[in-house]
């Protein structure tokens, strides 16, 4: 119950942005929702099931392209987004059945290779995707202001859906099974958990969320090209956000996304040429000093004065 109240609070806070904020704030809030959505999606496979997936960029790019190609053929954008989500879900289920029996680094590399291959495939299929030239998805008949608001609310809705899904999954049999798998897969198997099914479910769920966000992103920026949407940073950033907020927790990915965006903005503005280096240093510091995320630090800090209980 408590989770749902927090969710409502989050929505209320976000919904205030377009009322009071300027366009810059609206843009940041949209990116924040995008990041939070990616982090929440990755959390299903990476946090709950404990599988270090780097396939996020593959799903992001796949979603963006499926939706862009469909829209170029005249499909309305909402239908194209949904189609992108389902295409990625099926793709992830098939790929997942093939690579989810790999453990640790092997899985990580296989999932990374999926990104590379998919990017090249899209690059090569010029007839359909425009190849390296990219693809335009103009959105006609709407002022820039209206568009900015529209995409903010769409992105927010998606984040809320994913957050709700996270709450439901983590308190359900699926989430419980995934936690078992992440801690000891052999024991989970012996305990009667259909580990393959659970892992594939988590991977597909993750792909579904990421792909729809990718599709919305494509419509928002109105132009995509392979190196942009298949950027490996889309695989890495959600992972860092989740680490920042707390692996496998419910609100950790959202908190991590907010913190990450704040850091990114600060770094971008002040250290333009070395922003990647500063980001790298932050990641290093995070792994070394806050391996359980800021959430854990906060909890520990709260525990200390609790003498009376």
């Amino acid at each position: 119950m408590k989770h749902w109240l927090w969710l409502a609070a989050f929505v209320a806070a976000c919904a205030l942005v377009p009322l009071f904020g300027n366009n810059y704030a609206l843009r940041l809030a949209t990116i924040m929702c995008l990041y939070a959505g990616l982090a929440l999606s990755w959390n299903f496979i990476g946090g709950m099931a404990g599988y270090p997936s780097f396939a996020t960029a593959a799903f992001f790019g796949l979603g963006a392209y499926v939706s862009a190609v469909l829209q170029a053929k005249g499909v309305p954008f909402v239908a194209a987004w949904a189609a992108a989500g389902f295409a990625a879900t099926i793709f992830a289920a098939l790929i997942g059945m093939a690579i989810l029996h790999l453990k640790g680094h092997y899985f990580a590399i296989a999932s990374l290779a999926v990104v590379e291959v998919l990017r090249e495939v899209v690059n090569t299929a010029e007839g359909l995707t425009g190849g390296g030239m990219g693809i335009n998805i103009p959105l006609q008949g709407m002022s820039a202001d209206v568009q900015a608001r529209l995409f903010f609310f769409v992105m927010l809705t998606m984040t809320v859906v994913l957050l709700a899904a996270t709450i439901i999954v983590s308190t359900s049999k699926l989430g419980f099974g995934l936690r078992c798998i992440s801690q000891n897969e052999d024991a989970a198997d012996i305990l009667g958990i259909n580990t393959t099914f659970y892992k594939v479910a988590a991977f597909s769920l993750s792909a579904f969320g990421v792909a729809i966000i990718g599709a919305i992103y494509a419509s928002w920026v109105q132009y995509i090209e392979p190196p942009d949407v298949f950027d490996i940073l889309y695989s890495v950033k959600p992972l860092v956000m989740v680490l920042l907020g707390g692996l496998g927790t419910i609100f950790g990915p959202v908190i991590g996304a907010v913190l990450y965006l704040a850091l990114e903005e600060l770094v971008w503005r002040n250290f333009l040429t070395v922003h990647a280096a500063v980001l790298g240093a932050l990641i290093v510091a995070l792994v070394l000093f806050l391996p359980n995320g800021v959430g854990a630090m906060f909890r520990q800090w709260r525990k200390r004065p609790a003498v009376q209980s």
């Binding site: 404990g50 922003h275 280096a277 980001l279 790298g280 990641i283 070394l288 391996p291």
Partner: peptide, 28 residues
């Protein structure tokens, strides 16, 4: 060495961060 016993994800993220750092400095 500080995180050598941590899960795969941690060491991977650590070397990734170090790579971002070093590669960016080399770019500059």
């Amino acid at each position: 060495n500080r995180v050598i016993a941590a899960p795969v994800l941690m060491t991977l993220t650590l070397t990734f961060g170090l790579d971002l750092l070093l590669n960016n400095l080399m770019l500059v």
